[in-house]
Design a protein around this nucleic acid. Sequence first.
DNA 1: CTTTTTTACGCAAACGATTTCGTTTTGAGT
DNA 2: ACTCAAAACGAAATCGTTTGCGTAAAAAAG
Lengths: 345, 345
Amino acid sequence: MRFEAITIKDIAKALGLSTSTVSRALRDSYEISPETKQKVIAYAKENNYRPNPIALSLKEKRSSSIGVIVSEIANSFFSQAINGIESIANEKGYNVIIAQSKEELEREDSALQYLASRSVDGILLSVSSRTSNFDHIKKLYDRGMPMVSFDCLVDFEGIHKVMVDNIKAAYEGTEHLINKGFKNIACIASSSFLSITTERVKGYTAALHKYNQPIQTNNIEYIPHGGLIQEEIYEAMDRLMNQKEKPDAILACSDRITTNVMRYCQNKKINIPKQLGLIGFSNLDLTDLLTPSLSVVRQPAYEMGRAAADLLIKMLESKRAITEFENVVIPSTLIERDSSMQIKL
Amino acid sequence: MRFEAITIKDIAKALGLSTSTVSRALRDSYEISPETKQKVIAYAKENNYRPNPIALSLKEKRSSSIGVIVSEIANSFFSQAINGIESIANEKGYNVIIAQSKEELEREDSALQYLASRSVDGILLSVSSRTSNFDHIKKLYDRGMPMVSFDCLVDFEGIHKVMVDNIKAAYEGTEHLINKGFKNIACIASSSFLSITTERVKGYTAALHKYNQPIQTNNIEYIPHGGLIQEEIYEAMDRLMNQKEKPDAILACSDRITTNVMRYCQNKKINIPKQLGLIGFSNLDLTDLLTPSLSVVRQPAYEMGRAAADLLIKMLESKRAITEFENVVIPSTLIERDSSMQIKL
DNA sequence: CTTTTTTACGCAAACGATTTCGTTTTGAGT
DNA sequence: ACTCAAAACGAAATCGTTTGCGTAAAAAAG
């Protein structure tokens, strides 16, 4: 079974013209007489002609499409970011191809390779939590594939980057917990390879330092697969809660980590926030309905997507090579709810 | 800025061969001497050669990609379904292009048109809640575009369909509420155009009928945009709760409707389940963490995606035209939690 | 009534890969 | 020595579209 679309050749044959004439008529060239144009356009419309984008891509060496690689789309941050990307892309006449790395290096690489082999004009990339080595990305980038890095950033320079101020975001989250009276705050972050992890941990320690709270390395846990594997988070929680001095609050540095910490506490009958305060990075739109309502650091995913897509398309459409690379930093928002309120609830 | 990949021509030139020889060497043709093959393969590997899929698509008249149109990816049901689709597609060597209709007819049509113009071999479609007329879909389908309809189905026959048993699912949900002692159960469904709506309402009324509860039309609300617009749900709830005989429980027929009913109740200080029982269709993976934990009808989204993709690819790869069309019905699951427990909590 | 210009169109190449149909060379068979 | 076939490769068409160039006829200029 196959779908056969009408081509310029079919029109030419039907109207007794050459393909060049038809092509020019459709593009409203001055070399074609008004009558011929009229005939061609009418016939094309009638038969629902649409130029074959594949033939166009082959000829023009561009596909008018951009690729997006994220860890998974079933993640509120990324689905919101993709909405932002699409809003810009549609506006500018590009279409979007989405690929998921599922937090695996091999899938990231194969997605990159597929997109690279000419089907897309450029790539928006948020690296997976398993990406400790960025050579496969840098290689492709150096060979001329336009790319913009967003959220989980690549480690090299000379590339546009879009991010939140992770240090500040984590600092504010931690500070909020401190202000609410928590004395022994732990931090659960994503894989240690990621820039967002190191920055968020940096913000966390900076806040502790500022308020003269001790910084204990055994209060910092890293989750290798960024929360995709529930077990990893449960194990981290076990380690934290089995210490002599249990933490009394937790800063959870990703969506999946946050929800799985809540689930752990529910299973273990740990009351939030009485026994354990919690604030988490999350873009879920029903954190207000959770029990207790969840205090979150919210990333402006939609805006980040828009900014990244905008940078990429500007890059694609610029004549000369880019020499100045931007680091777009978009502010995050702290939303204080019940999960971080120690005293009264 | 543009990315230039290595082509078969480059290899031919570098090795002093013709493009035909290179092509054959890479495809391991018997007409090429082992030594030449060796040289070509080595050079190709070294220079990271990858066949240009666009050129291939043009020649083969197929793109090895399938399109998926859903209302929005930021919806747990669809993102899970897409995961299922991708799992099959990757297995069979297809890649997936995702488009969102955002519950708008125009966006659905333009997505369809784009995908149609030869960039995809087939389409998996869940129609938008604004789609009251299916002509644009049927037209394309009749012109030979392979399609499989899943979840929100098209209204015509002669096409593969993948769905849950909506009547049974709604029946079981309603029955569960009845068994828990609720006496005046309302139903909030998606737009009245959709087959899933009529079927779920049918299941709801069937259960009421079976247990001798009165069926009141003013207890059935339809949400034009399927829940994408929060206001529409709030207004429906207002209508329901301002009746003389308020409902004591609600069957919410989509993810967005369910969560927005909860949000409404929270705003209006309506206690679930004491004042209002609730069971909802939902695929969110944290309904267990809500307050109260949410009773749900869960659709097997991943399996539905797999089934739909499987049918489509079988269709694409079958030599002769399909004459038998399948209606794949996949069972849903009822998960009983606190939101539907009237007596004790 | 020529010559030049304009008008309106067709031819063919190009994009990258595959494939059908040659073509050349070598070696075996008679 | 002659035929024939196998082995190893190349030329060219094809997919759908655009575009530089060529060219016929018609119109304008001389």
